[in-house]
């Protein structure tokens, strides 16, 4: 499309100046042998408390286990990702998660005298199952806060798992479609370029 710019608004001299400041491309160097962080350090949470995060890991393990050659939520690092995502989310979302995970721990303690993370699959089911309700429409969540949390967390854990690099790799390895590339819109002529 041919367009014209607002008359004095475009700094037309920028291009040659920028070109003048360009330096030669660096020459190839020997690759540096990098060490993967996970082999030398333990992940730490940045948002959830330790008991909350342990409950989230257990919930992820139970709700989305490895199935049919696909990685489970733990393989995909879904709990760690959600610790990041919820940590930068609006406060309502943060509160939903904190309250929900505390609820799981409270019910586990009351029924089994253990934390939710320490429950076996059958015990965890007795906590989870009553909170599960069908959701006809995602924008009309259940009124019960525990159910609301569980439905939201289930959805998030599934999405974080299915959108993981591990899921994509497993799909590619098995010859199935695995979230191939999509068109991503870069910022278009943003105001703030710094």
């Amino acid at each position: 499309m041919q367009t014209i710019a607002a008359a004095p608004a475009v700094p037309v001299l920028l291009t040659p100046q920028a070109n003048a400041q360009q330096t030669a491309a660096p020459t190839a160097a020997q690759p540096i042998a990098a060490t993967k962080a996970g082999t030398v350090a333990e992940p730490v949470t940045r948002f959830f408390t330790a008991p909350q995060f342990a409950a989230l890991r257990k919930l992820a393990e139970v709700l989305m286990p490895p199935i049919g050659g696909n990685p489970g939520a733990l393989d995909a690092g879904a709990p760690e990702f959600l610790d990041f995502l919820i940590g930068v989310s609006p406060v309502e979302r943060q509160q939903l998660y904190r309250t929900g995970l505390d609820l799981l721990n409270a019910r586990a303690t009351k029924q089994f005298n253990k934390s939710f993370a320490a429950l076996d699959a059958k015990q965890a089911d007795t906590i989870i199952r009553p909170l599960l309700v069908p959701v006809p429409w995602p924008y009309d969540p259940p009124k019960d806060p525990g159910s609301h949390f569980l439905i939201a967390a289930h959805d998030d854990i599934r999405t974080a798992t299915r959108n993981s690099r591990e899921w994509g790799a497993a799909a590619a390895a098995s010859g199935r479609r695995g979230g191939g590339g999509q068109q991503y819109w870069n910022p278009v002529d943003p105001i703030y370029k710094g």
């Binding site: 998030d156 959108n163 278009v188």
Partner: peptide, 21 residues
């Protein structure tokens, strides 16, 4: 052509969730 790039969802900072808020 300039403003779109092919990316996989796991290469996005928020795994497809988008930046909250």
């Amino acid at each position: 052509a300039r403003d779109r790039t092919t990316k996989t969802v796991w290469d996005l900072p928020y795994r497809g969730f988008g930046k909250p808020g």
